[in-house]
Amino acid sequence: MGGVRLLDWLGTVAERAEIDWDAVYREELPRIYNFFRYRFGNRSSAEDLTSVTFEKAWRARHRYRQERAAVSTWLLAIARNVAVDHLRQLRPEIPLDEAEAGARDDETPETAALRTSQHRRLWSLLAALPAREQELLSLKYGAGATNRAIANLTGLSESNVGTILHRTVIALRASWHEGEAR
């Protein structure tokens, strides 16, 4: 029974339905990891911050409310807070990852080197973006969030999210071509 306290019992009725958290972990790990990967460019930071996010979520998972937000959105909200804390500690340094080397099975060493070089350039272009644009791109391309989910997370309107992302990609493209022209 354990709940002689009246309101304790009342709280019981509001407990959430069961969720397969192991499945949540499997499905959401790459999204959260890539959110941090895009946000900070550094693999080691991405792993550390992903760990912090999941440990926080694991401890708080009984408070998660399905009817309020999708579990992916809930996790991304925690991840955003973790990112903010991380930025407070690290700013202004945003290190780039040094480890991009290694050819995939389907490419030659030359192709791998070209890919690595292009990725490196792209990482540096991303790192040079304003914080808001970095975050939106991390949510969109790193975490694979929809514009609507991003809007819910950031408080921006959905159309505003779309507009900012569109402009950012255009700006990135311009910077990319500008670099090639040099």
């Binding site: 790990l29 990967r37 792993e47 440990e55 292009q118 792209l122 391309y141």
Partner: peptide, 26 residues
């Protein structure tokens, strides 16, 4: 540049890391 290179930056977490974090959560 189109959007694809942005998506190409995505990668799977290292299996060692995924396993280690899963252990921590257990």
């Amino acid at each position: 540049m189109n959007d694809d290179p942005l998506s190409e930056l995505r990668e799977e977490p290292r299996p060692e890391f995924a396993a280690s974090l899963a252990r921590r959560l257990r």
